[in-house]
Structure formats: C-alpha cells, structure tokens
Nucleic acid binder design. Structure first.
Length: 389
RNA sequence: GGGGCGUUCGUCUAGUGGUUAGGACAUUCGUCUUUCCAACGGAAAACACGGGUUCGAUUCCCGUACGCCCCGCCA
C-alpha cells in the first residue's frame, strides 16, 4: 500500500509553500487509497515547540488533510540509537572533534584554493590515543557517515553517481564525491534530521516521498544511509519546484501574511488556498476546487514543472471569489451561523452575486464586518441590513 | 570556487527542426442582464542574449547573462 509522509519540524508556522508539500503528498496518496503520515521532525529540542506542532496539525486539517498517523521523532530516540550503533559497527559512522569554527576555516581555505568545500575526513585518521585524549579533555565528538564514494581508500574519493527516477524531475544523479560526509549526530549527542528521517521512512513503511527540490542532494545521501541500514526496498522520491514571491524571492522570508494561519484568519476558503498551492507551478489550469478530492482527480506528480514558480497572493482573491460564487447556501450555512447570521439565505444570495458591493468583497464576512458600508448604495445597505438582522 | 536545475504572453504553462507558437489566470472590449456579479463571445499579449549546425532554429550544439538549489554540528 502506498504510504506518504509530511515531515515538518515544529519550529514555526507553515506557509503556503509548506502546505504545497503536504498537499502533494496527500493528493498522491489519495489517488491510490494510501495512508498519510504527519511526522514531526522535532529532534531539535531547543527549537521545537508543541504549540507549533499543534498549529501545524490544525493548518493541515483545515486544508482538508486528515492524517492517518501522527508521529513525533522525539519519542523514537531508541530506534535512532540502534541505527547509529549499527552504522558504527559497520565502520560507517566515525567520530570527529573539529569545532564549528575550525570547520568553517577549512571550508574557506578550500574555497580560496578553488577546491570544493568538502570535509577532509581527518576524523578517520585519529588514533585510539587521540580519542582517549579528547575524552580526557571532556570533548565529545560529532559523528559523520562515511559516504561510499571510494573503493577501499576513503582518502581517495572518486566520482560515484547515485541515481534515482524522480517522480517529478525524471532521472536524477548526484555525485557523492562532491559532498561532505554528513554529520548525523551533533557534539551534544542529539540527532540531525538525516538519520531519524531515514530510520523512520524505513520503519513506518513510507513508500513515496515528495518534498521540495532543495532536498535533491540530500536524497542521494539518504539513499546511501538507507542502504547502509540494510533497507530492502527504498522509497520512491519526488522533488517539487519551489514557490517564489512576486519578485522572485524566497517565500519563507515573508512568512507572516502567507502563513496558513493568517490566510485562514483573513477568511479565505481552504479550497482556494489548497487549489492555488497545488495548481501553481504545474501545467494544470489554476481553477479553484472546493475539495481535496476534486484536486486529487486532476493531480499527478508529472504535472509539476521543473523551475520555480512566482506566486502572487492576489490570485487567492480571485479563486476565493469564484469558490464563493459556486457555493450553495447549504454549504455556506454553517459558516454564516458561526458568524451569528440566523436567517442567512437571502443574505447569501445577495453576497453571491446580486449586489454591487460584491466586487469589493472577496470574503463574505467583509460585508458583515461592515467597513465598506460607506461604499454601498442605499438600496444595497438596506438589503444587507435586512438580511443580517 | 565546484556541481545541479532552469529561462516561452504581466503570471502559471503547452508545444514543435518548417505551427496563425496553444491553453489558463489577470487585463480589455462586447453580448446578455434594470444594474452589478456570474455566464457567454472577442481582443491585446511571449520563445533571455550571442555564435554555430541547417535550405530553415523558439526547438539541436557551444558560449554568455540572469535566477534558484546544494556543497551546514539547519531542515
């Protein structure tokens, strides 16, 4: 059975770009009757907060995704410990004692010499005495995974292409010789996301992974970690393009107004947000769909294009407007009642298309809140007033 | 510095060695409607730049520019 996951780290609120990743996964699973796992990557105890996890769950549900399973990585450390031991025994996880400052210096030095800023594996050269001395000094190591980019001599790496068939980008290859051995465990003993992610994807039986294309090189590393852990079958990966703001900048930098939470509070329909998040950056027409299953009917991974797509929040207004226009009173009724409008059918019909003011009202409770009353004609004001009572 | 990916109407995109370069959103005009919205119909709007291959390049090749991503004890 197909099983997908959305794995945010609960260190903040999610925005429309994150929602896109969640939606792609959910829609993929939906088409195959698969399961959706919401996994909180909260191995960073400092920055992870339960309130963010709760907020993300609320956002995901608001978009129409009900997780079949919710997992916190913070409750699974024994599994990661076991995996780390397994790698250590296989000689694939080695201790290093460089400080972040030292590593930074080394990177700069290599860059200055026009060399790729890759870790030189000096940790592998440490003798037992070295380790004992560091231990005596009270220094704790961070641990790196030895990438299989050599034939026997780790100090003589050679081009090693790792490839996979990407659901969205087609055939991909990454040269492991162009990467540093990834740190799996920090000096303080906590895990970076790589190992837990691999362990969980295996143990939870994740079959398909869709995520942003900033992860393409990570995927090569993770495929190797999974192989080293003895995974019998590897997940199928898909990397989607990113959304940019109007100016071509990164979306995460202007999280505020585009967080799912604020869009919800502004009164946008979940269908409008989900439709835009899903359909922008694909070859599909950006048509509002009221439900996830309608989106699922048209979505397949191959419609996602390869380059970043500029995203204009204005489009949300139009989608929302269209959705409201098509919305029946039955569907709208609970929404109206929640706002304290008892006999709302006349009001709803008015909002849907019989009033001049509608053009200015992109969300129906703009009308109720009344800030635009001044722009209304006498007639319209009387009509709305009547409908509201 | 190295590597990867990318660049088609304002935006999201389709597509091709010879096409009127197609669609969607937005824009605009019109029809309908008492009016507005909606609906329907029409219009305007694009192949990043420079070389090369070719009878012919938006398409193939090389280069340039620009953008994004990766090369983190972030995810």
């Amino acid at each position: 059975m197909m099983k997908v996951r959305f794995a945010p780290s609960p260190t903040g609120k999610i925005h429309i770009g994150n929602a896109r990743t969640a939606l792609f996964n959910a829609l993929l699973a939906m088409g195959e009757g698969g399961a959706f796992v919401l996994r909180f990557d909260d191995t960073d105890r400092e920055r992870s907060k339960q309130e963010y996890a709760d907020a993300i769950l609320e956002d995901v549900r608001w978009l129409g995704i009900e997780p079949d399973e919710i997992v916190y990585q913070s409750s699974r450390f024994e599994l990661y410990d076991a995996a780390a031991d397994q790698l250590r025994q296989a000689g694939l996880l080695y201790a290093c004692y460089e400080t972040p400052e030292e590593l930074e210096r080394q990177r700069k030095r290599r860059l200055a010499r026009h060399l790729p800023p890759i870790y030189d594996r000096s940790g592998l050269k440490l003798t037992d005495e070295d380790h004992a001395r560091f231990k005596e000094e009270g220094r704790t190591p961070h641990w790196r995974f030895l990438l299989p980019n050599h034939s026997g001599d780790p100090f003589a790496p050679k081009r090693t292409d790792v490839g996979w068939e990407d659901m969205m980008k087609g055939p991909q290859t990454v040269d492991l010789a162009s990467l540093s051995d990834p740190v799996l465990i920090r000096g303080d003993g906590t895990y970076l996301y790589t190992l837990p992610s691999c362990v969980d994807d295996r143990d939870l039986g994740i079959t398909h992974i869709v995520r942003g294309d900033d992860h393409v090189t990570n995927t090569a590393v993770q495929l190797e970690v999974m192989r080293a852990l003895g995974a019998e079958t590897l997940p199928i990966f898909g990397h989607h393009n990113f959304l940019q703001d109007k100016t071509g900048g990164s979306l995460s930098k202007r999280l505020g107004s585009l967080s799912i939470e604020s869009l919800r509070e502004e009164g946008f329909e979940p269908g409008a947000v989900a439709s835009l998040a899903t359909l922008i950056g694909t070859s599909l027409p950006v048509d509002p769909k009221a439900t996830l299953s309608e989106l699922g009917d048209v979505f397949t991974p191959d419609v996602v294009t390869r380059s970043a797509a500029k995203f204009d929040p204005e489009d949300l207004n139009n989608l929302n407007k269209k959705l409201l226009h098509a919305m029946s009173f039955e569907t709208a009724k609970p929404r109206l009642e929640a706002k304290g409008i008892s006999d709302g059918e006349a009001f709803w019909e008015a909002v849907k298309g019989n009033l001049t003011i509608f053009d200015d009202c992109l969300k129906w409770w703009d009308i109720i809140k009344g800030p635009i009353d001044a722009e209304m004609s006498e007639e319209d004001r009387a009509f709305v007033g009547e409908a509201k009572q």
